[in-house]
Design a protein around this nucleic acid. Structure first.
Lengths: 139, 139
DNA sequence: TTTGACACTCTCCTTTTGGTGCGTATGGCA
DNA sequence: TGCCATACGCACCAAAAGGAGAGTGTCAAA
C-alpha cells in the first residue's frame, strides 16, 4: 500500500547524495534559477537591456501585456535581487526610473542564448506540437 | 476616473508597433520562452543532459524534490515540444525511458549560460537581498 | 497468497499567480 | 474650481499550479 511513499522517500533521500557541488550552493542556485527563469523577469530584462533606462510605464509599454500589479512585483523582485536600480525623483507627478545593474546586464547576456534558441527553433517546436496533436488524435 | 484604463489600453495598443520583428514570430517566440523557461523543465533538461537516457523514476531522483504529477506533466510537455523522446518498452513491470532530442540538447546548451550565471553570481544575489532587507527594515 | 515493482492516472486540497478596479498625493493646467 | 498625470498600494476574486495520497495492471519473488 505504501510502496509509492517509500519509493519517493528513498528517491528524495538518495537525491541528496547525487549533486556534484555542495548542497547549500546547489539549493541557492536553484532558488536563484527558479526566480530568475520567470517569464516577466526575462521580458523586463530584455526591455531594459535594449532600451537602457526606462520609467515604470515605459517598461510596461515595451514589455506589453503585463498588468501594473505584475510589473510592480517583477521590478521589486529584480531590485531586491540586485538586477535593477530604482531611482526615485521626488517630483510631482512622481518620476521613477529603472536601469540594469552590471549583474542584470550579465544575466541578460546569459539569457541571450535562450532567446536565440527560441528564434532559431520556434518553427521546429510548432511542428513537433502539430505532430504530437495528430498522433494523439489518431490514437 | 478611467484614466488608468485608458493608459493601459494605449500602452497595449502602442506596444504592437514596437517589436522589431514580425508580431506573429514575436508572439510564438514568447510562447515558447514562457513554457520553456520553467523551473522543472530546466531541471529535467539538465538531468537528461548530464546523465543521458533515464527512466521515469530516475529522472525524478536526479532532479530531486519533484512530485510525480509535475514530473509527468513536465515530461509530457517536453515530449510535445520535441525536446525529449519517450520510448516505451512493453514489458512488465513497465519500462519507459527518456532521451533528449537534438532540439533538447541545443536548448540545454542555451541554458548553460544561465546556470553559469547563477553559479557565478548567487553570492552577489544573496548579498543584494540581505542589503535590501536591511534597507527596508531600517525604513 | 501476499507483496512489490514501474509508470503512471485520478481526486482532493492548498497555495500561488494574476487580473480588475479603487484609492492617493499634489502641482500645473483649463 | 476641478481634473489630469505618475507610480504605485490595497482589497477582492478567479484561475492555475502544485502537493498528497490512493488506485491500476501484471508478473515475479517471498
Amino acid at each position: 500500500m505504501h510502496a509509492i511513499r517509500e519509493a519517493m522517500a528513498e528517491m528524495h533521500a538518495r537525491s541528496e547524495a547525487i549533486p556534484p557541488v555542495s548542497p547549500a550552493v546547489e539549493s541557492l542556485v536553484r532558488q536563484v534559477i527558479a526566480q530568475v527563469a520567470d517569464k516577466w523577469t526575462m521580458l523586463v530584462l530584455e526591455a531594459l537591456e535594449e532600451r537602457g533606462t526606462l520609467r515604470f510605464t515605459e517598461v510596461g509599454r515595451v514589455v506589453g501585456g503585463i498588468s501594473q500589479k505584475m510589473l510592480t512585483k517583477t521590478l521589486r523582485e529584480m531590485e531586491r535581487d540586485g538586477l535593477v536600480v530604482r531611482t526615485v525623483h521626488p517630483v510631482i507627478p512622481p518620476h521613477v526610473d529603472y536601469t540594469l545593474t552590471e549583474l542584470g546586464r550579465e544575466l541578460s547576456a546569459a539569457f541571450c542564448g535562450v532567446w536565440t534558441w527560441a528564434e532559431t527553433y520556434y518553427a521546429q517546436v510548432s511542428a513537433a506540437r502539430k505532430a504530437f496533436r495528430e498522433r494523439e488524435e489518431g490514437a
